[in-house]
Every structure is written in structure tokens, then in C-alpha cells.
Amino acid sequence: MDHLDHVPARRGLVIFLNGTSSSGKSSIAGELLRTLDEPYFHMPVDAFHAMRSSSPVPQDQLASVLHRTWQGYHRAVAGMAAAGNNVVVDHVLSAEWRLRDCLSLLVPQDVVLVKVHCARKELERRERMRGDRPPGLAVGQLEQVHAHGVYDLECDTGEATPRECARRIKDFLSARTRPTAFERLRGAMERQSL
């Protein structure tokens, strides 16, 4: 008999980094993987978009293809956490349905929602330096990405290095409080649907 048949059941913790493109999420995620004491998987949404074949998508189908990609990504994250894996999510909640979908799939007490942001001028500078994103993408996402307004923790990447942000998140994990941001947001979502 395989000894792995007896792996104890548990739920994984999800560190959910939410911010615009170029806000510093991936840099923080990289530092978290080096800093955290337990194994974590970094699951950036960009990696899921990169998995798609290079076949051209007709313009009239692009929105549907992207929507299904996001939905699949959310379910992959939820599946990894449900199997007991700790996950660092690198996400852009630039559409309300994305937050609602995540709220319906993830165990809210097992999510640490982190606001990742920096000043508008710094976002614009980073976007120019990257050169791989359409100009104005990050600033265009600003209003919706943080519209829900509820977080467990905040990281200003214009004021703190990715390493400092990762350390702050790690320190927060041992002192998490309830209700979590996801618990509060899910409660608000359920009240709205009554």
C-alpha cells in the first residue's frame, strides 16, 4: 500500500495579491516563495493566458475566450487550495464578476487579500520600462481593481521593496484575524443577492 494514500486532509492558504498591471504583484510573489516557511505555488493569471496556443482568435470570440480563461484560472486556484496546497495568487480584479467568481469558489477564511498598489506616476513609469503592455493599461484598471475597498493587508510598492512587502505579508500570516476580507466581501455579496 502506498503511504501517500494516508496524506492528512487539509485546506491550503491563498495569499491573494490584487493590483493593476505593473503594480508589483509578481515581484512580491517571487519574494514570498523565497521567504515563506511552507511550500507555496505561485499561480499568476498571466501564466494561464500564456498557456493558450498561438492560434489567432477571431475578434468576435476574443471576449469569450478571455472570460473562459479567467474562469478556468479561478477554478484551478480553488482546486489547488482544496487539495491542501498553499497558493500565491497574482491577479487583476479589473471586472466585478472576477471578484464574485473568486468569492463563490474560494474558502473565505483561507484567503489573505492583499492590496498591491503604487502612485499613478510610478505605474506609468513601470509600464513604459516594461514595454510589453499597452500604454495606459495599468491606469485604466485603477478605478475598478480596488473598487470593493476591503483588504486584509496593503502593500505600497512605491514605498516598500518587494522583499519588505513579502516580509510584511509573512508576519501578517501568524496574526491573521477574522472575519477575513473575503468573509466580509462574501457576506456583502450574499446580502445583495437576497
Rank of each mutant, 00 (worst) to 15 (best):
D46P: 08
Y40K: 03
E190L: 15
V111I: 10
S174Y: 10
I28S: 02
L194R: 15
E31F: 03
Y40I: 07
H74N: 12
E190H: 09
V145G: 01
R184C: 11
V89M: 08
R125T: 14
V111N: 01
D5G: 10
S26T: 15
L137F: 05
F182T: 00
E164F: 03
C118L: 08
T35G: 07
A166R: 02
K121M: 14
R126L: 08
P39Q: 07
G24I: 02
G158R: 03
H42V: 05
E124K: 04
G84L: 12
V88P: 00
V45Y: 04
W97R: 12
P135K: 06
R52C: 04
L36A: 04
K170F: 14
R128C: 14
M1W: 15
R52W: 02
Q59N: 13
L13Q: 08
Q109Y: 08
V14T: 07
R176I: 13
F48Q: 06
L123N: 00
E164T: 02
G140Y: 02
C102V: 10
R133N: 12
H91G: 01
L153R: 01
D101R: 08
E183T: 06
L62F: 11
R130N: 10
V88G: 00
Y151T: 12
S53R: 12
A181E: 02
G12S: 13
R75G: 06
P39N: 13
L173W: 05
V57H: 10
G72T: 11
Q141P: 01
L99T: 02
Q109E: 15
Q109S: 15
L105G: 05
S22R: 07
A147L: 11
P56H: 10
V45I: 14
T177A: 13
D171V: 12
A138Y: 02
T35E: 14
L153M: 09
F41I: 13
E190Y: 03
E164W: 04
V112N: 00
R167M: 14
V57A: 06
A83W: 09
P108T: 01
L173C: 11
F182C: 04
L93V: 04
D37T: 12
G24K: 05
H67F: 12
G12L: 03
I28P: 02
F16H: 04
M80G: 09
M189N: 05
R126P: 06
L66N: 09
T20Q: 07
R133W: 12
F48K: 07
L173Y: 05
G84S: 13
R34S: 14
F182M: 10
E143V: 14
W97C: 08
H3D: 15
R34V: 07
P135F: 03
R100K: 15
T157V: 05
H148N: 07
A63F: 05
V88K: 00
A147S: 15
R130E: 11
K170E: 14
Q109K: 13
D110R: 15
D152M: 05
L62G: 04
G30P: 03
L105S: 09
S22H: 09
L194I: 13
L153T: 05
R98M: 13
R120L: 14
A119K: 14
A138S: 13
V92R: 00
D60L: 11
L13S: 03
V150Y: 01
V92F: 06
S21E: 03
R68D: 09
H6P: 04
